[in-house]
C-alpha cells in the first residue's frame, strides 16, 4: 500500500485526467486565432476582393468601394483621411459579432482563450467568477439581434452567387456561366446558411419559446428542421468559418493572377 499526493490541490491545469485534455482547447484556440488573424489582415487590404463576377464574402455587401459590386460608388469624400478605409471594415462587424456572441463559440473560447475552465474537470487560473450574469459578458445576450443581421447577410451572399453566374466576355456581352468560383461562393452560402439557421436563438424564435409546438410561427416542421441543423451547430460553425476564409482566399488569389478560375460552363 503506497501513498500519493492529496487530491485537494487547485490551480491552472490541476487534474487527475490522463487523456490529452489540452488538445481540444489548443486546437480550438489556434483555429480561432488563425481565423481572426487572417480575417483582420484580409479586411485591411482593401484590394483584390473581387474578380470578374465574384466578390469575396468578407467584402459583401460592398457599400462603398471601387469594384463593380459597389452599391453607392467609390469611397465618399467625407470619409476622414486619418481613418483607414476598406469596404470590409464597414460590414464585417455584423458577421463578426454574430460569431462572437454565438452560444457555441462562447463556450469554446471561454475554454480555449480564457481557461474558464481550460477543459472539463481541470483547474482554473482565477478564483473570482462572474459568468454571463453581469457586465461585460451579460452583453452576449444581444446574440439574437446579430442573428437578424446574419439572416439579412445570407440574402446578400445568395445574390452574390446569382451574380457569379453571369460572365462578361471580351466584347462586353453577358453570358450565363458557372466557374469554380461560382461553386465556391455557392458552397459558402450553404454552409453559412446551415450555421446561421441552426442558431440557438433561431430555434427559440421559430418555435422553442412555445411549450406547444402547434403555436410555432412557421409550424412544427420548420422547428424540427432548425433542430436538426442545431444538433450539428458546432460542425456547421467550423465548416462555414473555414469556407468563408477560403472563399476570400480564392477570390484574392484569382484576382492577383496566382490562381486561374476554371470555367465549367
Amino acid at each position: 500500500m503506497a501513498q500519493a499526493a492529496a487530491s485537494t490541490k487547485r490551480g491552472l491545469g490541476t487534474t487527475e485526467r490522463r487523456d490529452l485534455w489540452w488538445v481540444e482547447p489548443l486546437a480550438v484556440g489556434l483555429g480561432l486565432l488563425g481565423f481572426i488573424t487572417y480575417a483582420t489582415w484580409a479586411a485591411f487590404q482593401g484590394n483584390h476582393y473581387s474578380f470578374g463576377p465574384y466578390i469575396s464574402p468578407f467584402y459583401s455587401p460592398e457599400v462603398f468601394g471601387d469594384s463593380q459590386h459597389s452599391w453607392f460608388g467609390p469611397v465618399p469624400a467625407w470619409w476622414p483621411a486619418f481613418l483607414p478605409f476598406s469596404p470590409a471594415l464597414l460590414i464585417l462587424w455584423a458577421p463578426g459579432g454574430f460569431r462572437l456572441t454565438c452560444y457555441y463559440y462562447r463556450g469554446s473560447y471561454y475554454k480555449a482563450l480564457w481557461a474558464d475552465p481550460p477543459a472539463c474537470a481541470v483547474g482554473e487560473p482565477r478564483g473570482g467568477y462572474r459568468g454571463e450574469r453581469s457586465f461585460p459578458l451579460i452583453i452576449q445576450n444581444v446574440h439574437r439581434y446579430f442573428l437578424y443581421l446574419a439572416v439579412l447577410f445570407l440574402f446578400f451572399l445568395a445574390y452574390d452567387v446569382w451574380k457569379a453566374l453571369w460572365f462578361t466576355d471580351a466584347a462586353g456581352a453577358v453570358h450565363f456561366g458557372i466557374g469554380v468560383g461560382t461553386i465556391v461562393l455557392a458552397v459558402n452560402v450553404i454552409l453559412l446558411g446551415s450555421y446561421a439557421l441552426g442558431c440557438h436563438s433561431m430555434r427559440h424564435l421559430i418555435g422553442g419559446r412555445h411549450d406547444e409546438l402547434k403555436n410555432a410561427i412557421f409550424g412544427r416542421n420548420c422547428y424540427n428542421c432548425v433542430t436538426v441543423l442545431n444538433r450539428n451547430h458546432m460542425r456547421w460553425a467550423w465548416f462555414s468559418l473555414f469556407w468563408v476564409a477560403f472563399s476570400d482566399v480564392y477570390v484574392r488569389l484569382c484576382s492577383m493572377g496566382v490562381w486561374t478560375d476554371w470555367r465549367i460552363i
Partner: peptide, 26 residues
C-alpha cells in the same frame, strides 16, 4: 447567467441528456 455554456455537464451525463443545448440554452 453563471453558466458559460462550456458543456462539461453534457459531456459527463450518463443518461446522455443534452443538458446545455436542449435545457440550459433554451
Amino acid at each position: 447567467g453563471y453558466c458559460n455554456i462550456t458543456k462539461c455537464c453534457t459531456k459527463v451525463c450518463p443518461e446522455s441528456i443534452t443538458i446545455t443545448d436542449n435545457a440550459i440554452i433554451p
